[in-house]
């Protein structure tokens, strides 16, 4: 003889079953873009976020992430600074057409320091370091950038560049305006970025997995200050200003690939380097063409 299931167990199971039968079917996933007031007026002191994306030319999933980053740039305009760092296994020169080398000592140092073992991954203002979830996948970028842009700006960076075509000397004049009192030590990093270089790239979204004339965007080419920058501010007060000038000789080529100076930018950012445990959080970023 079989006993009936105890009523209370049945009720509990039915209740639990009902609660889990939840499925959200999405029949039309595309939604209209959220209206964003893209403000390109750099005089207005707004928060600017930097997304440092780690990539490589044989990383077949990276072009999709790059498109995602470009899409976000289209939405946020000047409020978002993109920097693409070629490093790690996927950036190693390989058999043709992947013989070129976009790696830099600075990029390798960043990849190693921030523990990049997967691509594509990005740092968004380097937040969540050292909690060990600082490396963000593309699906996280948008909401993170939105939330960071909502935070009142703490310091503002303005920049003017003067590039001498004859001598190839770049003079970079940077001004930092502190808008809120800050505690700690802050470093300024200045980098050279070259945008839009056409070279081959593995892309798993195309039939034969290779795009011969892929447009590489926002490539880290060199550092002007050093990978970890110069210590420029300690416990600054609201209203403090700082002027820094850097002079840099732009080389004719990087690892055999000629530099197109009309596609070069200077990127500067300020980050928290307070000893003994810097958070590396980036407070503000800025980018300006060298000419």
């Amino acid at each position: 003889m079989y006993r009936l299931l105890p009523v209370r167990v049945l009720i509990a199971l039915i209740f639990l079953s009902a609660s889990i039968f939840s499925c959200d079917y999405v029949e039309y996933p595309y939604t209209p873009p959220t209206p964003v007031n893209v403000n390109s007026d750099t005089v207005q002191k707004v928060r600017k976020v930097i997304l440092e994306e780690f990539t490589g030319h044989t990383c077949g999933n990276c072009p999709t992430a790059a498109k995602s980053a470009t899409g976000l740039k289209n939405i946020h305009g000047d409020k978002l600074v993109l920097l693409t760092i070629h490093e790690g296994f996927f950036a190693l020169p390989q058999a043709p057409p992947f013989t070129y080398d976009f790696r830099t000592a600075t990029g390798t140092a960043y990849g190693s320091f921030f523990g990049v073992i997967q691509h594509p991954m990005a740092l968004v203002n380097r937040i969540d370091y050292p909690a060990n979830n600082h490396l963000k996948t593309p699906g996280n970028w948008s909401s993170l950038i939105d939330s960071l842009l909502d935070v009142p700006v703490e310091a503002f960076i303005s920049m003017e560049n003067d590039f001498n075509e004859a001598t190839k000397i770049l003079d970079c004049n940077i001004r930092i305006d502190v808008l809120r009192p800050l505690t700690g030590t802050f470093n300024l990093v200045v980098l050279l970025m070259e945008d839009s270089i056409q070279k081959a790239q593995i892309d798993y979204d195309v039939p034969n997995d290779t795009v011969q004339d892929y447009w590489h965007r926002h490539i880290l080419r060199a550092n002007i200050t050093g990978a970890w920058g110069d210590s420029v501010l300690t416990d600054p007060q609201e209203g403090d200003t700082l002027l820094k000038n850097y002079s840099y000789s732009v080389p004719a080529d990087f690892k055999g690939y000629p530099v197109h100076t009309d596609q070069c930018f200077v990127i500067a950012y300020l980050y928290d380097a307070t000893p003994p445990a810097p958070t590396y959080r980036i407070l503000q970023a800025e980018e300006t063409k060298i000419k």
């Binding site: 079953s17 499925c23 999405v26 498109k67 470009t70 948008s142």
Partner: peptide, 26 residues
């Protein structure tokens, strides 16, 4: 068996598109 996962968020930006995403996936 039946399994359902729940995650907050109804929209993500991917490739520059705004996409509605399901919170409950069964």
């Amino acid at each position: 068996s039946f399994v359902s996962k729940y995650q907050t968020g109804t929209e993500v930006v991917y490739l520059g598109y705004n996409l509605a995403v399901p919170r409950n996936v069964g």
